[in-house]
Design a protein around this nucleic acid. Structure first.
Lengths: 168, 168
DNA sequence: TCGAACTTTCAAAAGTTAGTGAAAATTATT
DNA sequence: AATAATTTTCACTAACTTTTGAAAGTTCGA
């Protein structure tokens, strides 16, 4: 397989993965492009390679920066801004996990906490079914929260390899 | 908070979570409704509670069954079909993990394996950057695969609690 | 075998999300 | 301060996804 073909395939695969994850396709494709680039790319180079508009490029690069997996770099003597992706994929994983936790799990925990305060006759089977379900889900969510916090905190690889050996 | 209000809030929250996960909102809402129901519900009851059409109900219930988190149940003496959700949230988690792995991780692993065969001058910095990136991602993906397989296989709660204590 | 009860399908409509490109804003250079 | 290069914004459009509801299909009991 030629490099050009391989690159295109990777960008496309990473894009679909992103799309399935609720990350927009273009954002994931820009990320893919930067991951395999030998050096920082400018907005124009990204536009060119992916055939997307300037506005789209700008928006999605900014979002990648928000997620903490892409950085602006200044090349001396150049007026343009250049962008580079975090290459350590463990760190990328951690950053994505942290971001998704903040957006998804944290709000859910809040809601579940509220919902535990439901009032009503404990003998009513509707109330009982509701309370039981919410309690179960709350425990699960809390557990996940604790686990993810540990993972996010422990960026060092010894941690991952410890878990890894355990699960192997 | 009254039960009706709490129910509505939970269904809405579960729906948004689903939407962010690329699961369609209605599918997640039906799932939420079944999770807190004290008994199996018919298609008509689901339509009624969520104000959705028959077609929509049918499609999404079928998809929930495909994911293995909802079951058809037959109530003696009744002609209609009734539906019930898996109430053990750990099992729900496992089923969803397994399904997503099949749809997302497995195809990605295949692609990455292919891409490692890229041909070209090892001294070309473009080739080198590509190969390095793909190798790193492949290792990460493989690792995740092994880990998830272990999680999926071990449905017993002792397993989760062992990991839990470790991470605590 | 017929018909009522129920489920499934599917084409069209509605709704949602992503992408464009030109204009506005910002920043750097002279 | 004027100009040029670059980035950011945003109203609009294009593409995609979901939902509807009526029609077709199926199942079951009499």
């Amino acid at each position: 397989m030629k490099l050009q073909e391989a690159k295109a395939q990777f960008i496309q695969a990473w894009g679909s993965l992103g799309a399935q994850w609720g990350i927009n396709r273009t954002m994931a494709q820009i990320h893919a492009l930067l991951l395999i680039a030998p050096a920082a790319l400018s907005a124009d180079e990204i536009m060119e390679e992916l055939n997307i508009s300037r506005g789209n490029t700008n928006m999605n690069v900014r979002e990648l920066i928000n997620w903490g997996i892409v950085e602006k770099v200044l090349v001396p003597g150049e007026r343009k801004e250049f962008f580079i992706a975090e290459k350590d994929i463990w760190k990328v994983g951690t950053a994505i996990t942290a971001e998704r936790k903040k957006r998804e799990l944290d709000p859910m925990l809040k809601v579940l906490q509220q919902l535990q305060k439901v009032e009503g006759d404990a003998k009513d089977k509707n109330v009982k079914a509701f309370v039981d379900a919410i309690n179960g889900i709350y425990k699960f969510a809390k557990h996940t929260d604790v686990t993810l916090n540990a993972l996010i905190k422990a960026e060092e690889s010894w941690f991952y390899s410890t878990i890894f050996k355990l699960l192997k």
